[in-house]
Design a protein around this nucleic acid. Sequence first.
DNA 1: TAAAAGATTTAAGCATACTTAAATATTAAT
DNA 2: ATTAATATTTAAGTATGCTTAAATCTTTTA
Lengths: 221, 221
Amino acid sequence: MSASTENFLKTIYCFQKLEARDTKPGSIAKALGISNAAATDMARKLSEKDLLEYRKYQALQLTPKGERLALQVIRKHRLWETFLYRTFNMSLLEIHNEAELLEHATSDRMSEILWNYLEKPSFDPHGDPIPNGYGFVDFEKDSTVLFKAEEKQEYRIIRLVSNDEEFYNFCCDNKIEIGNDIKVAKQYSKNQLTEILIHERQIVIPKEFSNNIYVTKVNDQ
Amino acid sequence: MSASTENFLKTIYCFQKLEARDTKPGSIAKALGISNAAATDMARKLSEKDLLEYRKYQALQLTPKGERLALQVIRKHRLWETFLYRTFNMSLLEIHNEAELLEHATSDRMSEILWNYLEKPSFDPHGDPIPNGYGFVDFEKDSTVLFKAEEKQEYRIIRLVSNDEEFYNFCCDNKIEIGNDIKVAKQYSKNQLTEILIHERQIVIPKEFSNNIYVTKVNDQ
DNA sequence: TAAAAGATTTAAGCATACTTAAATATTAAT
DNA sequence: ATTAATATTTAAGTATGCTTAAATCTTTTA
Protein backbone atom coordinates (compact mmCIF):
# COMPACT_ATOMS: atom_id res chain seq x y z
CA MET A 1 0.00 0.00 0.00
CA SER A 2 1.37 3.37 -1.01
CA ALA A 3 1.75 6.32 1.32
CA SER A 4 -0.96 8.15 -0.67
CA THR A 5 -3.43 5.35 -0.09
CA GLU A 6 -2.51 5.11 3.57
CA ASN A 7 -3.00 8.83 4.11
CA PHE A 8 -6.28 8.75 2.24
CA LEU A 9 -7.72 5.95 4.37
CA LYS A 10 -6.31 7.45 7.56
CA THR A 11 -7.94 10.81 6.86
CA ILE A 12 -11.32 9.24 6.14
CA TYR A 13 -11.11 7.26 9.36
CA CYS A 14 -10.25 10.30 11.45
CA PHE A 15 -12.96 12.42 9.87
CA GLN A 16 -15.61 9.75 10.12
CA LYS A 17 -15.00 8.11 13.46
CA LEU A 18 -13.04 10.60 15.48
CA GLU A 19 -14.07 14.02 14.33
CA ALA A 20 -17.56 13.46 12.92
CA ARG A 21 -16.69 15.53 9.86
CA ASP A 22 -17.90 15.27 6.32
CA THR A 23 -16.09 12.64 4.22
CA LYS A 24 -16.92 13.67 0.70
CA PRO A 25 -13.92 13.68 -1.63
CA GLY A 26 -13.65 17.48 -1.43
CA SER A 27 -13.12 17.51 2.33
CA ILE A 28 -10.50 14.78 2.13
CA ALA A 29 -8.81 16.60 -0.74
CA LYS A 30 -8.56 19.77 1.28
CA ALA A 31 -7.08 17.96 4.26
CA LEU A 32 -4.49 16.21 2.09
CA GLY A 33 -3.67 19.26 -0.02
CA ILE A 34 -4.65 17.65 -3.32
CA SER A 35 -7.26 18.60 -5.91
CA ASN A 36 -10.85 17.45 -5.72
CA ALA A 37 -10.37 15.61 -8.96
CA ALA A 38 -7.48 13.63 -7.48
CA ALA A 39 -9.56 12.69 -4.45
CA THR A 40 -12.51 11.54 -6.57
CA ASP A 41 -10.14 9.51 -8.67
CA MET A 42 -8.56 7.94 -5.61
CA ALA A 43 -11.99 7.15 -4.18
CA ARG A 44 -12.96 5.33 -7.35
CA LYS A 45 -9.76 3.32 -7.37
CA LEU A 46 -9.91 2.39 -3.69
CA SER A 47 -13.53 1.34 -3.99
CA GLU A 48 -12.45 -1.08 -6.73
CA LYS A 49 -10.01 -2.54 -4.22
CA ASP A 50 -12.82 -2.90 -1.70
CA LEU A 51 -11.25 -0.45 0.72
CA LEU A 52 -14.14 1.96 0.72
CA GLU A 53 -17.67 2.48 -0.58
CA TYR A 54 -18.08 5.20 -3.11
CA ARG A 55 -21.26 6.40 -4.74
CA LYS A 56 -21.28 9.57 -6.74
CA TYR A 57 -21.91 12.73 -4.77
CA GLN A 58 -22.06 10.76 -1.53
CA ALA A 59 -19.78 10.69 1.52
CA LEU A 60 -17.04 8.04 1.51
CA GLN A 61 -17.40 5.08 3.85
CA LEU A 62 -14.59 2.74 4.76
CA THR A 63 -15.23 -0.96 4.31
CA PRO A 64 -14.13 -3.28 7.15
CA LYS A 65 -10.98 -3.96 5.14
CA GLY A 66 -10.28 -0.26 4.65
CA GLU A 67 -10.93 0.45 8.29
CA ARG A 68 -8.47 -2.25 9.36
CA LEU A 69 -5.77 -0.71 7.19
CA ALA A 70 -6.51 2.80 8.44
CA LEU A 71 -6.26 1.59 12.02
CA GLN A 72 -2.92 -0.03 11.34
CA VAL A 73 -1.51 3.22 9.97
CA ILE A 74 -2.86 5.23 12.90
CA ARG A 75 -1.41 2.63 15.24
CA LYS A 76 2.03 2.98 13.66
CA HIS A 77 1.81 6.76 13.77
CA ARG A 78 0.96 6.82 17.46
CA LEU A 79 3.50 4.19 18.41
CA TRP A 80 6.23 6.24 16.74
CA GLU A 81 5.00 9.39 18.44
CA THR A 82 5.12 7.66 21.79
CA PHE A 83 8.54 6.26 21.08
CA LEU A 84 10.08 9.49 19.82
CA TYR A 85 8.64 11.42 22.70
CA ARG A 86 9.92 9.09 25.36
CA THR A 87 13.27 8.29 23.81
CA PHE A 88 14.39 11.61 22.39
CA ASN A 89 12.31 14.12 24.30
CA MET A 90 11.08 15.64 21.07
CA SER A 91 8.23 18.15 21.20
CA LEU A 92 4.61 17.23 20.57
CA LEU A 93 4.81 18.96 17.23
CA GLU A 94 8.03 17.28 16.15
CA ILE A 95 6.86 13.80 17.02
CA HIS A 96 3.81 14.34 14.86
CA ASN A 97 5.81 15.44 11.84
CA GLU A 98 8.35 12.65 12.07
CA ALA A 99 5.66 10.03 12.71
CA GLU A 100 3.88 11.27 9.62
CA LEU A 101 6.88 10.08 7.60
CA LEU A 102 7.81 6.98 9.57
CA GLU A 103 4.29 5.50 9.68
CA HIS A 104 4.58 4.58 5.99
CA ALA A 105 7.95 2.90 6.37
CA THR A 106 7.08 0.64 9.27
CA SER A 107 6.73 -3.12 8.99
CA ASP A 108 4.20 -4.96 11.13
CA ARG A 109 7.09 -6.59 12.94
CA MET A 110 8.58 -3.18 13.70
CA SER A 111 5.32 -1.92 15.14
CA GLU A 112 5.06 -4.95 17.41
CA ILE A 113 8.62 -4.34 18.60
CA LEU A 114 7.72 -0.74 19.41
CA TRP A 115 4.52 -1.80 21.13
CA ASN A 116 6.31 -4.24 23.41
CA TYR A 117 9.26 -1.95 24.06
CA LEU A 118 6.86 0.80 25.12
CA GLU A 119 5.04 -1.66 27.40
CA LYS A 120 1.82 -1.79 25.46
CA PRO A 121 0.76 1.83 25.73
CA SER A 122 -2.92 2.76 25.40
CA PHE A 123 -2.37 6.40 24.55
CA ASP A 124 0.16 8.45 22.69
CA PRO A 125 1.75 11.57 24.17
CA HIS A 126 -1.08 13.69 22.80
CA GLY A 127 -3.58 11.64 24.74
CA ASP A 128 -4.92 9.94 21.64
CA PRO A 129 -5.73 6.26 21.99
CA ILE A 130 -3.53 3.73 20.19
CA PRO A 131 -5.60 1.18 18.28
CA ASN A 132 -4.65 -2.48 18.12
CA GLY A 133 -5.18 -4.17 14.77
CA TYR A 134 -8.94 -4.49 15.19
CA GLY A 135 -9.99 -1.22 16.73
CA PHE A 136 -9.31 0.80 19.79
CA VAL A 137 -8.38 -0.91 23.01
CA ASP A 138 -11.33 -1.06 25.35
CA PHE A 139 -11.33 1.66 27.86
CA GLU A 140 -11.04 0.12 31.28
CA LYS A 141 -14.49 0.46 32.74
CA ASP A 142 -13.45 0.76 36.32
CA SER A 143 -10.69 3.28 35.79
CA THR A 144 -10.23 6.15 38.19
CA VAL A 145 -8.08 9.16 38.21
CA LEU A 146 -5.24 8.75 40.71
CA PHE A 147 -6.47 11.84 42.50
CA LYS A 148 -9.58 9.92 43.58
CA ALA A 149 -7.97 6.54 44.27
CA GLU A 150 -8.39 4.70 47.57
CA GLU A 151 -5.65 4.58 50.19
CA LYS A 152 -3.81 1.31 50.78
CA GLN A 153 -5.06 -0.02 47.47
CA GLU A 154 -2.90 -1.31 44.62
CA TYR A 155 -3.43 -0.02 41.13
CA ARG A 156 -2.06 -0.33 37.65
CA ILE A 157 -1.42 2.77 35.56
CA ILE A 158 -3.46 2.55 32.34
CA ARG A 159 -3.58 6.02 30.88
CA LEU A 160 -1.64 9.27 30.88
CA VAL A 161 -3.31 12.22 29.21
CA SER A 162 -2.25 15.83 29.16
CA ASN A 163 -1.12 18.61 26.92
CA ASP A 164 1.44 19.66 29.46
CA GLU A 165 5.06 18.93 28.65
CA GLU A 166 6.02 19.04 32.33
CA PHE A 167 3.49 16.37 33.15
CA TYR A 168 5.20 13.95 30.79
CA ASN A 169 8.63 14.89 32.09
CA PHE A 170 7.41 14.23 35.61
CA CYS A 171 6.03 10.81 34.62
CA CYS A 172 9.21 9.91 32.83
CA ASP A 173 11.44 10.94 35.72
CA ASN A 174 9.37 8.95 38.18
CA LYS A 175 8.79 5.84 36.08
CA ILE A 176 5.10 6.58 35.93
CA GLU A 177 4.38 4.58 32.82
CA ILE A 178 1.41 2.71 31.50
CA GLY A 179 1.42 -0.87 32.77
CA ASN A 180 3.37 -0.10 35.94
CA ASP A 181 1.85 -1.09 39.28
CA ILE A 182 1.69 1.29 42.20
CA LYS A 183 0.26 1.45 45.68
CA VAL A 184 -1.56 4.48 47.00
CA ALA A 185 0.00 5.22 50.39
CA LYS A 186 -2.00 8.24 51.44
CA GLN A 187 -4.39 10.88 50.16
CA TYR A 188 -3.68 14.31 51.61
CA SER A 189 -7.17 15.48 50.75
CA LYS A 190 -6.98 18.99 52.05
CA ASN A 191 -3.81 19.75 50.10
CA GLN A 192 -4.82 17.60 47.15
CA LEU A 193 -1.68 15.49 47.23
CA THR A 194 -1.43 11.77 46.59
CA GLU A 195 1.42 9.74 48.02
CA ILE A 196 2.22 6.57 46.12
CA LEU A 197 4.71 3.77 46.16
CA ILE A 198 6.30 2.94 42.84
CA HIS A 199 9.34 0.77 42.30
CA GLU A 200 10.07 0.80 46.07
CA ARG A 201 10.09 4.58 46.00
CA GLN A 202 7.63 6.89 47.66
CA ILE A 203 6.58 9.98 45.77
CA VAL A 204 4.04 12.69 46.34
CA ILE A 205 1.95 13.81 43.39
CA PRO A 206 0.01 17.07 43.30
CA LYS A 207 -3.50 17.27 41.92
CA GLU A 208 -2.32 18.90 38.69
CA PHE A 209 -0.62 15.65 37.80
CA SER A 210 -2.67 13.04 39.67
CA ASN A 211 -5.71 14.18 37.74
CA ASN A 212 -4.08 13.11 34.51
CA ILE A 213 -3.08 9.67 35.70
CA TYR A 214 -5.70 7.01 35.13
CA VAL A 215 -5.45 3.78 37.13
CA THR A 216 -7.38 0.58 37.64
CA LYS A 217 -7.46 -1.68 40.70
CA VAL A 218 -5.16 -4.66 40.74
CA ASN A 219 -6.93 -7.69 42.18
CA ASP A 220 -4.36 -9.84 43.97
CA GLN A 221 -5.07 -13.50 43.84
CA MET B 1 13.91 12.86 -3.66
CA SER B 2 11.98 9.64 -4.16
CA ALA B 3 12.94 6.32 -2.62
CA SER B 4 13.71 5.02 -6.14
CA THR B 5 16.18 7.81 -6.75
CA GLU B 6 17.75 7.36 -3.34
CA ASN B 7 18.21 3.65 -3.87
CA PHE B 8 19.63 4.22 -7.33
CA LEU B 9 22.26 6.67 -6.10
CA LYS B 10 23.04 4.55 -3.05
CA THR B 11 23.65 1.47 -5.17
CA ILE B 12 25.96 3.32 -7.55
CA TYR B 13 27.91 4.69 -4.62
CA CYS B 14 28.34 1.28 -3.00
CA PHE B 15 29.34 -0.39 -6.27
CA GLN B 16 31.74 2.34 -7.25
CA LYS B 17 33.44 3.30 -4.03
CA LEU B 18 33.01 0.38 -1.72
CA GLU B 19 32.86 -2.73 -3.82
CA ALA B 20 34.77 -1.72 -6.94
CA ARG B 21 32.06 -3.24 -9.09
CA ASP B 22 30.82 -2.28 -12.51
CA THR B 23 28.30 0.57 -12.53
CA LYS B 24 26.71 0.21 -15.93
CA PRO B 25 22.92 0.45 -15.87
CA GLY B 26 22.59 -3.34 -16.19
CA SER B 27 24.48 -4.04 -12.97
CA ILE B 28 22.49 -1.47 -11.04
CA ALA B 29 19.26 -2.84 -12.51
CA LYS B 30 20.12 -6.33 -11.33
CA ALA B 31 20.89 -5.14 -7.81
CA LEU B 32 17.64 -3.20 -7.59
CA GLY B 33 15.49 -5.86 -9.21
CA ILE B 34 14.34 -3.66 -12.08
CA SER B 35 14.72 -4.02 -15.85
CA ASN B 36 17.75 -2.73 -17.73
CA ALA B 37 15.50 -0.36 -19.61
CA ALA B 38 14.27 1.17 -16.36
CA ALA B 39 17.83 1.68 -15.16
CA THR B 40 18.92 3.33 -18.42
CA ASP B 41 15.89 5.58 -18.22
CA MET B 42 16.64 6.51 -14.63
CA ALA B 43 20.28 7.22 -15.51
CA ARG B 44 19.23 9.61 -18.24
CA LYS B 45 16.82 11.44 -15.94
CA LEU B 46 19.24 11.72 -13.04
CA SER B 47 21.97 12.99 -15.33
CA GLU B 48 19.61 15.80 -16.33
CA LYS B 49 19.34 16.67 -12.66
CA ASP B 50 23.12 16.71 -12.41
CA LEU B 51 23.21 13.79 -9.98
CA LEU B 52 25.31 11.55 -12.20
CA GLU B 53 27.24 11.46 -15.46
CA TYR B 54 25.82 9.24 -18.11
CA ARG B 55 27.23 8.55 -21.52
CA LYS B 56 25.82 5.74 -23.62
CA TYR B 57 27.34 2.31 -23.01
CA GLN B 58 29.57 3.74 -20.29
CA ALA B 59 29.66 3.16 -16.54
CA LEU B 60 27.67 5.61 -14.41
CA GLN B 61 29.59 8.15 -12.34
CA LEU B 62 28.09 10.14 -9.50
CA THR B 63 28.56 13.88 -9.60
CA PRO B 64 29.61 15.60 -6.35
CA LYS B 65 25.95 16.46 -5.81
CA GLY B 66 24.86 12.85 -6.40
CA GLU B 67 27.57 11.55 -4.14
CA ARG B 68 26.50 13.87 -1.33
CA LEU B 69 22.93 12.61 -1.57
CA ALA B 70 24.05 8.98 -1.68
CA LEU B 71 26.15 9.50 1.42
CA GLN B 72 23.23 11.04 3.27
CA VAL B 73 21.05 8.03 2.51
CA ILE B 74 23.78 5.60 3.56
CA ARG B 75 24.28 7.64 6.71
CA LYS B 76 20.59 7.39 7.58
CA HIS B 77 20.59 3.67 6.86
CA ARG B 78 23.53 2.98 9.14
CA LEU B 79 22.34 5.24 11.92
CA TRP B 80 19.02 3.38 11.99
CA GLU B 81 20.85 0.04 11.97
CA THR B 82 22.96 1.10 14.90
CA PHE B 83 19.93 2.41 16.74
CA LEU B 84 17.76 -0.65 16.17
CA TYR B 85 20.58 -2.98 17.14
CA ARG B 86 21.37 -1.21 20.39
CA THR B 87 17.83 -0.35 21.43
CA PHE B 88 15.85 -3.43 20.44
CA ASN B 89 18.50 -6.12 20.13
CA MET B 90 17.34 -6.93 16.63
CA SER B 91 19.46 -9.26 14.48
CA LEU B 92 21.96 -8.05 11.89
CA LEU B 93 19.58 -9.12 9.12
CA GLU B 94 16.51 -7.49 10.64
CA ILE B 95 18.20 -4.14 11.22
CA HIS B 96 19.22 -4.11 7.57
CA ASN B 97 15.71 -4.78 6.32
CA GLU B 98 14.04 -2.23 8.58
CA ALA B 99 16.71 0.41 7.87
CA GLU B 100 16.11 -0.16 4.17
CA LEU B 101 12.58 1.19 4.72
CA LEU B 102 13.28 3.83 7.34
CA GLU B 103 16.18 5.49 5.50
CA HIS B 104 13.75 7.02 3.00
CA ALA B 105 11.43 8.41 5.69
CA THR B 106 14.06 10.15 7.76
CA SER B 107 14.40 13.92 7.98
CA ASP B 108 17.82 15.51 8.35
CA ARG B 109 16.80 16.60 11.83
CA MET B 110 15.89 13.02 12.73
CA SER B 111 19.25 11.73 11.58
CA GLU B 112 21.04 14.34 13.70
CA ILE B 113 18.98 13.30 16.70
CA LEU B 114 19.94 9.67 16.13
CA TRP B 115 23.59 10.59 15.63
CA ASN B 116 23.75 12.48 18.93
CA TYR B 117 21.71 9.93 20.84
CA LEU B 118 24.08 7.19 19.72
CA GLU B 119 27.04 9.33 20.73
CA LYS B 120 28.41 9.96 17.26
CA PRO B 121 29.16 6.39 16.21
CA SER B 122 31.78 5.70 13.51
CA PHE B 123 30.62 2.21 12.56
CA ASP B 124 27.32 0.38 12.32
CA PRO B 125 26.76 -3.10 13.80
CA HIS B 126 27.94 -4.74 10.56
CA GLY B 127 31.25 -2.90 10.93
CA ASP B 128 30.51 -0.52 8.08
CA PRO B 129 31.60 3.09 8.53
CA ILE B 130 28.96 5.78 9.00
CA PRO B 131 29.54 8.70 6.64
CA ASN B 132 29.12 12.23 7.96
CA GLY B 133 27.62 13.90 4.95
CA TYR B 134 30.90 14.82 3.30
CA GLY B 135 32.47 11.40 3.16
CA PHE B 136 33.46 8.53 5.36
CA VAL B 137 35.20 8.70 8.66
CA ASP B 138 38.55 6.98 8.57
CA PHE B 139 38.20 3.50 7.22
CA GLU B 140 40.42 0.59 8.13
CA LYS B 141 42.93 0.71 5.33
CA ASP B 142 44.35 -2.77 5.50
CA SER B 143 41.13 -4.75 5.57
CA THR B 144 40.73 -7.90 3.47
CA VAL B 145 37.96 -10.28 2.80
CA LEU B 146 38.55 -13.57 4.62
CA PHE B 147 38.45 -15.36 1.29
CA LYS B 148 41.71 -13.64 0.31
CA ALA B 149 43.46 -13.77 3.69
CA GLU B 150 46.92 -15.27 4.15
CA GLU B 151 47.50 -18.68 5.66
CA LYS B 152 49.01 -18.92 9.15
CA GLN B 153 48.17 -15.29 9.77
CA GLU B 154 46.08 -13.94 12.65
CA TYR B 155 43.25 -11.56 11.95
CA ARG B 156 40.53 -9.66 13.72
CA ILE B 157 36.98 -9.65 12.34
CA ILE B 158 35.93 -6.07 11.61
CA ARG B 159 32.97 -6.30 9.31
CA LEU B 160 30.10 -8.64 8.39
CA VAL B 161 27.92 -7.69 5.43
CA SER B 162 25.30 -9.71 3.62
CA ASN B 163 21.63 -9.84 2.69
CA ASP B 164 21.53 -13.56 3.39
CA GLU B 165 19.79 -14.79 6.51
CA GLU B 166 21.78 -18.03 6.49
CA PHE B 167 25.02 -16.08 6.52
CA TYR B 168 24.09 -14.41 9.79
CA ASN B 169 22.87 -17.67 11.30
CA PHE B 170 26.17 -19.23 10.34
CA CYS B 171 28.12 -16.39 11.96
CA CYS B 172 26.03 -16.56 15.07
CA ASP B 173 26.37 -20.33 15.43
CA ASN B 174 30.14 -20.15 14.98
CA LYS B 175 30.82 -17.08 17.12
CA ILE B 176 31.95 -15.13 14.11
CA GLU B 177 31.42 -11.67 15.54
CA ILE B 178 32.98 -8.26 15.04
CA GLY B 179 36.00 -7.85 17.30
CA ASN B 180 36.76 -11.56 17.59
CA ASP B 181 40.24 -12.80 16.66
CA ILE B 182 40.85 -15.74 14.38
CA LYS B 183 43.72 -17.53 12.70
CA VAL B 184 43.60 -18.60 9.07
CA ALA B 185 44.70 -22.24 9.07
CA LYS B 186 44.51 -23.03 5.38
CA GLN B 187 43.15 -21.75 2.08
CA TYR B 188 41.78 -24.53 -0.11
CA SER B 189 42.06 -22.35 -3.18
CA LYS B 190 40.75 -24.80 -5.74
CA ASN B 191 37.60 -25.46 -3.76
CA GLN B 192 37.37 -21.91 -2.49
CA LEU B 193 37.27 -22.91 1.15
CA THR B 194 38.94 -21.18 4.06
CA GLU B 195 39.82 -23.06 7.22
CA ILE B 196 40.07 -20.93 10.33
CA LEU B 197 40.66 -21.33 14.04
CA ILE B 198 38.22 -19.49 16.24
CA HIS B 199 37.81 -20.00 19.98
CA GLU B 200 39.96 -23.14 19.79
CA ARG B 201 37.65 -24.57 17.16
CA GLN B 202 38.47 -25.27 13.55
CA ILE B 203 35.86 -24.47 10.94
CA VAL B 204 35.77 -24.48 7.18
CA ILE B 205 34.07 -21.57 5.47
CA PRO B 206 32.93 -21.65 1.84
CA LYS B 207 33.49 -18.72 -0.48
CA GLU B 208 29.84 -17.65 -0.28
CA PHE B 209 30.39 -16.74 3.37
CA SER B 210 34.13 -15.94 3.50
CA ASN B 211 33.55 -13.21 0.93
CA ASN B 212 31.31 -11.39 3.38
CA ILE B 213 33.69 -11.52 6.33
CA TYR B 214 36.14 -8.62 6.46
CA VAL B 215 39.27 -8.93 8.58
CA THR B 216 42.40 -6.98 9.42
CA LYS B 217 45.79 -8.33 10.44
CA VAL B 218 46.52 -8.53 14.14
CA ASN B 219 50.10 -7.51 14.85
CA ASP B 220 51.23 -9.13 18.07
CA GLN B 221 53.51 -6.96 20.08
C1' DT C 1 -39.18 26.83 -7.89
C1' DA C 2 -35.80 28.50 -10.68
C1' DA C 3 -31.61 30.56 -11.11
C1' DA C 4 -27.14 31.31 -8.92
C1' DA C 5 -23.55 29.49 -6.23
C1' DG C 6 -20.92 25.77 -4.87
C1' DA C 7 -19.33 20.89 -5.20
C1' DT C 8 -18.32 16.96 -7.65
C1' DT C 9 -17.15 14.49 -11.59
C1' DT C 10 -15.27 13.77 -16.13
C1' DA C 11 -11.81 14.56 -19.50
C1' DA C 12 -7.37 15.43 -21.03
C1' DG C 13 -2.71 15.79 -19.80
C1' DC C 14 1.74 15.28 -17.21
C1' DA C 15 5.71 13.10 -14.41
C1' DT C 16 7.40 9.09 -12.21
C1' DA C 17 8.69 4.55 -12.35
C1' DC C 18 8.22 0.79 -14.07
C1' DT C 19 7.23 -3.18 -18.06
C1' DT C 20 8.24 -6.01 -22.60
C1' DA C 21 9.93 -6.29 -27.22
C1' DA C 22 12.76 -4.73 -30.88
C1' DA C 23 16.86 -2.38 -32.49
C1' DT C 24 21.52 -1.39 -31.85
C1' DA C 25 25.98 -1.38 -29.91
C1' DT C 26 29.73 -3.82 -27.46
C1' DT C 27 32.41 -7.78 -26.17
C1' DA C 28 34.01 -12.37 -26.65
C1' DA C 29 35.11 -16.30 -29.41
C1' DT C 30 36.50 -18.74 -33.33
C1' DA D 1 38.26 -10.05 -38.67
C1' DT D 2 33.83 -11.93 -38.65
C1' DT D 3 30.44 -13.93 -36.25
C1' DA D 4 28.04 -15.11 -32.19
C1' DA D 5 26.78 -13.94 -27.67
C1' DT D 6 25.79 -10.45 -24.54
C1' DA D 7 24.52 -5.95 -23.02
C1' DT D 8 22.46 -1.55 -23.75
C1' DT D 9 19.31 1.49 -25.63
C1' DT D 10 15.08 2.87 -27.82
C1' DA D 11 10.25 2.51 -28.42
C1' DA D 12 5.78 1.66 -26.98
C1' DG D 13 2.82 0.83 -23.30
C1' DT D 14 0.99 0.57 -18.25
C1' DA D 15 -0.28 2.07 -13.34
C1' DT D 16 -0.05 5.60 -9.93
C1' DG D 17 -0.93 10.02 -8.43
C1' DC D 18 -1.33 14.05 -9.38
C1' DT D 19 -2.79 18.68 -12.39
C1' DT D 20 -6.25 22.13 -14.78
C1' DA D 21 -10.41 23.03 -17.24
C1' DA D 22 -14.92 21.95 -18.61
C1' DA D 23 -19.21 19.57 -17.70
C1' DT D 24 -22.53 18.09 -14.54
C1' DC D 25 -24.85 17.59 -10.38
C1' DT D 26 -26.47 19.46 -5.70
C1' DT D 27 -27.60 22.96 -2.64
C1' DT D 28 -28.76 27.46 -1.48
C1' DT D 29 -31.43 31.48 -1.69
C1' DA D 30 -34.17 34.82 -3.50
